[in-house]
């Protein structure tokens, strides 16, 4: 399949035989519809992001694809195998790093890794080159119990264990949740390197700013997929005019912007507010006058490009 992987980052999954294929998956827990009509394909070698808040259905989706849960209806294949009928074949082929640390706390670092290698009928030596960059960072602590590791080291061990059998698809469920920005960046650097090894990855995250690190993303909320595309296409398809607005009193500014009928939406965005306006009905000069009449000082208004987070919020409206 090497010849296929050349331009996967730009292509959609069309034309390639998808390595993960989901068709109309539904899943309920009692009255709660956890997943509704979820369909998508992931191409071999792709880094595919599932982006949405808690409760969107990300973990349920991963558990169905790793054969740990049955869908109510719909079908899915992973690496050509059916998630219901061929669950044993899939379990041999995929790597899964759940959101909650789930290695053996009472085993040492090395014992955990050995255990997972032997469960998958392999050895640390056989696939050492794949995990080397990650495992070397925790190897000095290989005699330490997993339960006594720091959060970042646990994560590196969990990733090593999920990779030890060289899976064809790696599922990472919220690997960066609760992780500080510097460690998050480091984690994505590791994923970038794994991508070069040809490992297909599905990564879920609630952090919208991680979207740009994926080849393609699915935005998901309340069990439904809102959009699937490359991050660049998603932000380019944002149709409304978007401005950033600042003034000396940012909190009052938020209320004054919302009170303007020509302002369509207004959200705080770090040190600026992002507003969308109904096209053509308001100019930057008009808005500046309106705000200065309201007593605002040091007003700064700029046209801006939408981020994935702007797009997600627009879709929620």
């Amino acid at each position: 399949m090497l010849h296929l992987s050349e331009s996967h980052s730009e292509s959609s999954a069309e034309g390639l035989r998808p390595i993960v294929h989901c068709l109309s998956i539904d899943k309920s827990y009692g009255q709660v519809k956890a997943l509704q009509n979820v369909s998508f394909d992931v191409a071999p070698g792709e880094l595919f992001g599932i982006i949405g808040p808690d409760g969107a259905g990300k973990t349920t989706l991963f558990r169905i694809l790793t054969t740990l849960l049955l869908p109510v209806s719909g079908s899915a294949t992973v690496d050509g195998f059916d998630v219901v009928k061929d669950f044993k074949a899939i379990r041999k082929r995929v790597g899964y790093m759940p959101g909650r640390f789930s290695l053996y706390q009472d085993l040492t670092v090395e014992e955990n890794l050995n255990f997972f290698a032997s469960v998958f009928n392999t050895t640390i030596e056989e696939n050492y080159d794949l995990i080397k960059d990650i495992y070397q960072q925790i190897e000095p602590f290989k005699m330490r119990r997993a339960g006594a590791l720091s959060g970042g080291m646990k994560q590196k061990l969990a990733l090593s264990c999920a990779l030890i059998h060289r899976p064809s698809v790696l599922f990472l469920d919220e690997p960066t949740t609760g992780v500080d920005p510097v460690s998050r960046k480091e984690f994505w650097e590791m994923l970038k390197k794994l991508k070069q090894e040809g490992i297909t990855m599905l990564v879920s995250t609630p952090y919208m700013d991680e979207a740009s690190l994926c080849d393609r993303i699915a935005l998901i909320n309340k069990g439904q997929i809102l959009k699937i595309d490359t991050p660049a296409n998603i932000v380019n398809q944002f149709e409304k005019t978007l401005w950033t607005v600042q003034s000396k009193d940012m909190h009052r500014l938020l209320h004054d912007l919302r009170a303007n009928p020509l302002v369509d939406s207004c959200f705080a965005f770090g040190d600026t507010h992002h507003i969308t306006i109904n096209n053509g009905q308001l100019t930057i000069d008009n808005l500046a006058t309106y705000l200065s009449d309201k007593g605002h000082e040091e007003i700064i208004i700029h046209p801006a490009k939408a981020t994935v987070e702007d797009c997600f919020m627009e879709m929620l409206r």
Partner: peptide, 15 residues
């Protein structure tokens, strides 16, 4: 960490 994992709109309402 009151807003961890919360959707972007609710996160802003929280603030």
């Amino acid at each position: 960490e009151p807003t961890g994992g919360v959707d972007p709109v609710t996160r802003r309402q929280f603030w």
